[in-house]
């Protein structure tokens, strides 16, 4: 368990560095911005206590806010993602009893499950984030387009992250 906590802290640091130093500086076709740091929240164990899930997501969002001049927007979107996570997990797996310590990974849940899980939660996160960013509805369709495109790109990168971090030997435990 102690090892697991260290691994999640490692994810946190690496994802913040990747997001702030690389992805915030890349512009795909003008206005598509992938926010891959949500992978940190998606990777937390299924049976994590609710308060820890919410607080660590809030911390992640605030850290990204600090480095990209967006006051509270990422915090708000990430907390919403964390709040919806248990519900989404129950909904797409059709059950709520998991072995203690189960992590949402391709080797444990299957590729289709992970893809659907990522897409739904990233869509929710990006929707709140992009509407908070413009803070008005006058550019509604442009914003919808940005949400759609960015959700697609983020989902692909996050899914690649899932495949990269997967540990097949863990299945035997």
């Amino acid at each position: 368990m102690g090892n697991g906590i260290l691994r999640h802290i490692g994810h946190f640091i690496i994802l913040v560095v990747i997001q702030v130093m690389i992805l915030n500086n890349i512009r795909f076709g003008g206005y598509i911005n992938p926010y891959v740091y949500v992978l940190f929240v998606l990777l937390l164990p299924v049976d994590i206590p609710g308060w820890l899930l919410l607080l660590s997501s809030f911390g992640m969002g605030l850290t990204i806010d600090l480095f990209s001049d967006t006051q509270g927007m990422h915090a708000a979107a990430t907390v919403l993602l964390a709040f919806a996570r248990p519900g989404v997990i129950r909904m797409i797996s059709g059950r709520s009893d998991f072995d203690p310590g189960t992590v949402p990974m391709v080797s444990e849940m299957g590729a289709r499950w992970v893809l659907l899980y990522t897409m739904l939660l990233v869509l929710l996160h990006h929707t709140l984030l992009f509407f908070l960013e413009i803070f008005r509805f006058s550019e509604f369709f442009l914003t919808l387009g940005r949400i759609g495109l960015s959700t697609g790109i983020t989902t692909i990168i996050v899914f690649l992250g899932f495949l990269l971090l997967d540990k097949p030997e863990k299945r035997g435990r």
């Binding site: 609710g50 919410l54 001049d69 006051q71 509270g72 915090a75 248990p86 803070f135």
Partner: peptide
């Protein structure tokens, strides 16, 4: 779980709204 969510979300949205009031993002961090 719900109340903690509500609390954190309110704090975050307050941050956002407060800075929207200042036309020129006085606290660009």
């Amino acid at each position: 779980f719900f109340f903690l969510f509500l609390l954190l979300e309110t704090v975050a949205i307050l941050f956002v709204v407060q800075h929207q009031h200042y036309q020129r993002a006085r606290f660009a961090s």
